Computed example of a mutant assay.
Amino acid sequence: MKYDDAYWHYSGDFPADLPPTAAATHAGMFLAWALLSGLGGELHVIDCPDNLLSLQQRRETPGQFLCRACDEKFIEEDLNDEGRAFAQAYFDFDSGRYMLDYENVLSRELPSLYHVPDTWETYASLKPILDQRLADWRTQQR
């Protein structure tokens, strides 16, 4: 299953003033958080541990990571079983909960959600919300 693909965004109604990589920021933020929170799949944890190390050491931003390590795609193999279940419940575009949180926390004053900077400071602003959503979700699973 593919959760997101930057191509879906930059090939559609996308701001002309931004590079296509800006379409990877929102998914990159979620994926980086998931990997750094222990929700990573074997692809990143076992097969390519340098991917996780790159994030841990902040050698690249979350959006850059998604573009480089994931070919602009966020797929189910990026996550472990718990990560997939949480992503299905929270990241899923049909439910819209992640994007609502993302927009409320990061893009209220910006022209679009694509204008959110792909930085570790942005990640730090979003992380507490994601941590809380995961904790709430885990409580509901008991």
Rank of each mutant, 00 (worst) to 15 (best):
R138M: 05
L79I: 07
D5T: 06
P62G: 08
M1E: 04
E76S: 14
A69W: 12
P62A: 06
Y98H: 02
K2D: 05
S112N: 09
C70L: 02
L130C: 11
P49M: 11
T139A: 15
Y90A: 04
D4A: 15
P15G: 03
Y102F: 13
D94M: 09
S11G: 13
V105P: 04
P128V: 07
I46R: 12
P49T: 09
Q56E: 14
V116W: 00
F93I: 12
L31K: 06
T21Y: 08
L79M: 10
L100D: 12
Q132L: 11
P15R: 04
E60A: 06
D47A: 10
L134H: 09
A22T: 06
L31M: 14
P19A: 09
E42K: 13
R68E: 11
D50A: 13
A85F: 04
R142I: 11
D4L: 03
K73W: 00
W120G: 07
Q141C: 13
C48G: 02
L43W: 11
V116Q: 02
S11Q: 14
L18A: 11
F65T: 01
D92F: 03
L79R: 04
D17M: 02
W8P: 02
G28N: 02
G38N: 02
F30T: 04
Q141E: 14
V105Y: 04
W8L: 11
S107L: 04
T119W: 01
T122Y: 00
M29I: 02
Q56R: 14
L110Q: 08
E103W: 00
F74L: 13
A24N: 04
G38R: 01
R133V: 13
L39D: 09
W8R: 13
T119S: 15
E60Y: 00
L110G: 07
I46A: 10
L35I: 14
F74W: 07
F93P: 04
L35G: 03
